[in-house]
Design a protein around this nucleic acid. Structure first.
Lengths: 187, 187
DNA sequence: TATTGCAGAGTGAATATTCACTAACTATAT
DNA sequence: ATATAGTTAGTGAATATTCACTCTGCAATA
């Protein structure tokens, strides 16, 4: 499951291409150009293009899991909620090429392996968000007029759309600032 | 801006392919197979593949605008809100091939024309939703603790994610029922 | 009425280009 | 000397698009 420096560089380049030109832009040729070496060199580091996409998604799932697991357990619900999203925004601000993680729908292909990996990534996100919201509902921070599922749905939908807008605006606004504002609105 | 019967058939077929196999599945070959005629016949009706995608998005923007403009102006805010979304759900239930409209993120190509058309489609949606929410805030149906922009954002994000889930579940649940539930949760 | 001609909508084959991927060679660093 | 990481120069398959041609129905005309 571990990844070499060069492999990380390649999946970063792949993420960059994906966020700017979508799945149709992610060709071995473009990838090689981005890496500034020949197409064939890619295959020194990965067996296939599919493997690159899967490595990209796995890397995102792994780092996200690590990052979100590090949130201080002592914090109260509201603080945790803020911390979780600020953490995400900070990460994406620093690594805009990986915005693809949020809207990885575009990758939807016939490849079963890719779809499974996307599902796993989704699960990691839910794993971290849902318990926080559930506790928040218990403590009265959020309405319990609706189920935790509905609430998770609303929160994630809002987050995704924000990221989408950020991307189509060419990362033109400050995602951390905007994100904070949206999160406070949600609260 | 008007479209022939055959052109409508073709963009419907394109939508069908897009929702089932994504942008990579949308090839002239697949399109021809879906239409049950030769690849070359496509070019009797459109100048290029790009033109087909743009026609598809334009058609959606146009019909959506018409549909949503027809909402009875006499209704109160809450009813209008419900009516607007039920209208959308009904349309997509009837024409699932066009779900692509909602999550058109996947289309992100290098093509400036396509990106512009997507932006236009987005604007049409906002044009209809925002005034309803603004009035709702005035009348106390929604919180005015947050700006109308934020509220619009949350509502649209929630809606989009629902559509996305519907699609990846292979249109397995009743979008009208689920949509109604989500809407009431939002209210 | 029969003939002509023409436009719309199709065909299969051919085009150039792009795709993912491979084989064989080469420089360099340990 | 050998492993590593790059190169150049290919491969066959798929892609979007164009080609010359055909069929069909209809309207003008002789």
């Amino acid at each position: 499951m571990d990844i070499s420096t060069r492999q990380l560089e390649i999946i970063t380049a792949a993420g960059k291409i994906l966020t700017t030109s979508g799945i149709t832009g992610l060709t071995t040729k473009n990838l090689a150009k981005e890496m500034q070496f020949a197409e064939s060199a890619i295959y020194r580091h990965f067996q296939s293009k599919e493997d690159i996409i899967i490595a990209l998604l796995n890397y995102l799932a792994q780092t996200m899991d690590e990052r979100l697991s590090n949130i201080d357990d002592e914090l109260n619900t509201e603080e945790k909620f803020k911390e979780l999203f600020q953490n995400q925004f900070k990460f994406f601000k620093k690594n805009p090429h990986f915005v693809v993680a949020v809207f990885s729908d575009g990758l939807m292909e016939e490849s079963t392996r890719i779809n499974e990996t996307i599902a796993k990534l989704m699960q990691v996100k839910i794993k971290h968000i849902k318990p926080i919201l559930a506790k928040g509902q218990q403590k009265g921070v959020f309405t319990d007029a609706i189920s935790t599922e509905e609430l998770t749905h609303i929160v994630m939908g809002t987050f995704r759309l924000l990221m989408y807008k950020w991307r189509i605006s060419n990362f033109d606004f400050d995602i951390k600032k905007s994100g904070d504002k949206t999160m406070i609105a949600l609260l």
